[in-house]
Simulated assay, not measured.
Amino acid sequence: MADNRQKQDNRDRSKVAASEDYGVACRVLKFGASKKRALELIIKHGGSRKNFEAERARSP
């Protein structure tokens, strides 16, 4: 039986996992940051996408 799509709570969308290569790679491609810099920002902000994107917008 398939999962009930009505019971999704979107917790995964608010965080980026530094331990998952695809999450880091997505940030690298989207913002043009190096992999090392992306990992630093993910760790600094505890994986918060919102804070990561805000800091990337402030710094080139």
Rank of each mutant, 00 (worst) to 15 (best):
F31N: 13
C26P: 07
R37W: 10
C26S: 14
L39D: 12
V24N: 00
L41C: 05
F52Q: 06
V28K: 09
V24F: 01
G47W: 02
L29I: 14
R49K: 14
K30F: 09
H45M: 08
C26H: 15
C26G: 12
F31A: 13
R49Q: 11
R37T: 13
H45T: 13
A54H: 02
S34N: 03
R37C: 09
E53R: 04
L41G: 04
A54S: 07
R37F: 11
G47E: 01
N51G: 11
A54E: 03
K30M: 12
I43Y: 13
V28F: 04
E40M: 03
K50C: 09
S34L: 05
F31M: 11
G32Y: 01
K44D: 08
L29H: 14
R49H: 12
F52P: 02
L39K: 13
V24M: 00
V24Y: 00
L29A: 15
R49A: 10
A54T: 04
R49P: 06
K35Y: 10
A25K: 15
V24I: 01
S48L: 02
V24Q: 00
C26E: 14
G23V: 04
I43G: 13
C26I: 12
A33N: 08
K50D: 10
S34Y: 06
E40D: 07
V28I: 08
A54N: 06
E40N: 05
G46D: 01
G47S: 02
V24A: 00
R49C: 11
F31V: 12
A38R: 00
K50T: 10
H45R: 09
V28T: 07
V28H: 06
R27K: 11
K30L: 12
E53K: 04
A25M: 13
V24T: 00
K35H: 10
R27M: 15
G23P: 01
A33F: 06
A33G: 08
R37K: 15
A25C: 08
K35E: 13
C26N: 14
F31S: 14
G23R: 08
C26W: 14
K36Y: 09
G32V: 05
E53G: 06
A54Q: 05
S34R: 06
G32C: 03
A25F: 12
N51R: 15
I42Y: 00
A25R: 15
S48K: 03
V28N: 06
K50Y: 10
A25L: 13
S34V: 04
A38S: 04
E40R: 04
E40P: 01
A33W: 08
E40Q: 08
K35P: 06
E40C: 03
F52Y: 10
I42V: 08
A38Y: 00
K44Q: 09
K36H: 08
A33D: 08
G47H: 03
F31Y: 14
L39M: 12
F52K: 05
F52E: 05
N51C: 12
K30I: 11
S34G: 08
G46N: 01
R27G: 13
G32P: 06
K36S: 10
V24R: 00
E40A: 06
E40F: 02
